[in-house]
Design a protein around this nucleic acid. Sequence first.
DNA 1: GCAAAAGTGTTAGGCTTACACCCATGC
DNA 2: GCATGGGTGTAAGCCTAACACTTTTGC
Lengths: 240, 240
Amino acid sequence: MRCTTRHGVYTSSSDPATLRVLLWRRALDPHIGRWSLPGGRLRPDEDTETSIRRQLAEKVDVKTLTHVEQLGVFSAPNRVPGPRVVATAYLGLMPSDVDPVVPEDTAWHNVDDLPRTAFDHADIVLEARERLRAKLSYTNLGFALAPKQFTISALRDLYSAALGYPISATNLQRVLSRRGVLVPTGRTAAPGRAGGRPAALFRFAHRDIRVTDPFAVFRPPAASSNRRSRTRGPGSKPVT
Amino acid sequence: MRCTTRHGVYTSSSDPATLRVLLWRRALDPHIGRWSLPGGRLRPDEDTETSIRRQLAEKVDVKTLTHVEQLGVFSAPNRVPGPRVVATAYLGLMPSDVDPVVPEDTAWHNVDDLPRTAFDHADIVLEARERLRAKLSYTNLGFALAPKQFTISALRDLYSAALGYPISATNLQRVLSRRGVLVPTGRTAAPGRAGGRPAALFRFAHRDIRVTDPFAVFRPPAASSNRRSRTRGPGSKPVT
DNA sequence: GCAAAAGTGTTAGGCTTACACCCATGC
DNA sequence: GCATGGGTGTAAGCCTAACACTTTTGC
């Protein structure tokens, strides 16, 4: 039995209206020539996340992963023809404004229009997309997709592409600001040639993942009259 | 490198006010004699979930897992002394009213008061607890902990134990009923010897996991005037 | 001035929490 | 009758979605 890792790298680079994944063509049988998620072997001295960052940097020049997260183990006995292979799949994200030089046999693919892939890699990609969609709603994960500075409408395009349906810039700004996720930089972007009011530039308050809307329901008893009690962990107790 | 599985089995059996995990004493070095999560090897013809159900049934007579879910891969290079071991950890749940006969070297432990464990198994247990807590809030996962029929106050005790803080029976009933998670059976339980109104008996509407509160925010545009739009997936579009 | 893009004000509705109050039973 | 546990009514608060309206720019 072999244990491998498979890396999903997502971005909306170049075209901000699409969510893309980096695939390469398999150089070996089985499924030689088909598009597949980049992957490779774990070195003895590294954990899986370190391994993924190293391999993506070495093999496809992707050095700017802003977030890496484990998706899970794919272990169906016949998911790969021939000897049993158990794969651990990851979701990696990079900002929309970086565009690494990728090798000849590697290309970005629109997640909503995947080519035929090797093995179960299409399933892995779709599971990664669901994970991303969910976490955009209850965490600050947008930081991993956005440039360091951005306008609200640019951020709206990113969220709309990742979620798959239109998002209102008005409410996006309000929700993320109230949660303390978004911070104004004070600067503005120049308007396009069609005119329009110059857009304010924002940045994310934190560049590590945080849960910003932890409890759908069954929240712990309110701690005094603190309005921000929703942002606390389940272990928090009333101060009194 | 070895790939193993580690099984976390949680319940609130016997004492409904505590959340418990099944541990056994290691029979081999390293860390011989310490409490550890049950685990074992994957057979060639089974995937990981099948493997876990089989091993728990064979080795510790736990045959009634109502839910099994992957936690993730634990891969830190030195998490186990000696040769490298990468473990895939699982969360398994069973109802509070079953009490399997477990072997001599196996025992239930209160999750809030763990003994010294082998390796990083205490970390795994705590991560499993966090997963359970989160999913109780936005899914119907309570079905996996509850008996087939139960009173609201019994269910409240289960939720309170798992979440770690008191839950109101009033609101638990209302929220789960409105979401369609809970269904009245029409029957009632006899009151205790201290008297009191007989409690109505309920059951879970479904016995497979479902997301009941999918979007904290950034919901898709409302589909007509359907009040249940929150229960739809992100791919749903307006009907018109 | 006018179109275009960005941002603000305001309203409405959904959902959960909190709490007061009514119900049914044993003793 | 009264204590005890169970269940309902209701009001308040928070939050997001929707949309009208204002602001600032290019031409």
